[in-house]
Computed example of a mutant assay.
Amino acid sequence: MYPSITPPRRVRIGDAAAFAGTTPRAVRHYHGIGLLPEPERGADGRRRYGYDDMIRLLWIRRMAAVGVGLDDMRTAFDEARDEARDIQEILSSLEETLAAREAEIKRQRAAVQRLRALGSPLGLLSELVTDRLGHLPPGALRPTDLNTLLVTERVFGPLGAAIQAGVFIVLATHPDLRAEDDRLDAAEAALDDGVDPHDPRVEELAAQRCAQQVALEQAMEAAGLDAAEEKRFEIYDADLTGEEDTGMSPFQAITKMPYDFSPARMRCMELTAQLLADTHSADH
């Protein structure tokens, strides 16, 4: 027996903070200063965070990372309070700290310049992703596309987001594929409405989604957005090593997000993946 409506999943403050790369205390501080709206509370009185809350948290963390907000320099002088150490060693250590801070300020200034030039949230994405999206006219991408890229980059890194960006480029430049994608999204969302996982519509929708994915891949290949980009990706991959350590695996990151798909929708996703694997295997 499946419920007629599956409510959106919402997560606790610990999971929300872990996904954003911060702490529950910091999240509470964001609430206190009005930076993050207070979310709904569950029956136990605890805060519950949904998708929009997570997007806002990612914005806050990314903007803080480029120097937007208060920046305390006291850490650089902590070692100088140890009077037992030789003054030359202390000064040498402090000089290294300040040099590192200077490099960080230059990085932050460059990031702020990107934000001013590209706007938000596009300017919050990595250079690899924004470069790939650069030839599209302003407004070609939907705000939801950009939010998805923000989440994808957090989970899978810049290279994963760059691959996802290729899909959005095709959707932005092929109205027929965009219309079909919207139709499939709506149909998949309807599976959360108490549909039996073995309903024939699940298999039909999986076949349609597979066909759509193949069409997207063909359009990407025709536009030079697939294997032709691999060499450029390899160059960026070397440059981006260590750019942002999420501190968790992609699977762990995904479990922190407020996704809660029904059994029917999960089966549709699994069938789609199997159909795609079979299709690619047959092609080779």
Rank of each mutant, 00 (worst) to 15 (best):
T241H: 13
A165V: 04
E83P: 08
A16V: 06
A215E: 06
L122M: 10
I105E: 03
A17T: 04
A187F: 05
S4V: 10
H198D: 15
Y259R: 11
L159I: 14
T279A: 15
A222K: 14
L205E: 00
F19H: 05
G34C: 03
H29G: 04
R28K: 09
E180C: 04
G21Y: 00
P121D: 08
R85L: 11
T75L: 14
I55V: 14
H174D: 12
A65F: 00
V167G: 00
L177M: 05
E102F: 07
G123Y: 02
E217C: 11
G157M: 01
A26Q: 15
A273F: 09
P175T: 04
E243Y: 13
F261I: 04
M73D: 10
A187T: 07
G139V: 02
R183N: 01
G32D: 14
H284T: 11
S126I: 02
A187W: 06
V214D: 08
A16Q: 02
A84S: 15
E230L: 12
Q113P: 02
A20T: 03
F77M: 08
G21W: 01
A26K: 10
A100Q: 12
P137A: 15
Q108L: 05
S126C: 07
F168H: 04
E38F: 01
A179E: 13
D245S: 07
R85I: 05
E89C: 10
I13Y: 06
E83A: 13
E217A: 15
D185Q: 13
P37W: 09
R62W: 03
A186L: 12
A117G: 12
W59V: 13
V68K: 02
I5G: 06
M54G: 02
E89V: 13
Q164S: 15
R62L: 05
M220K: 15
L171F: 03
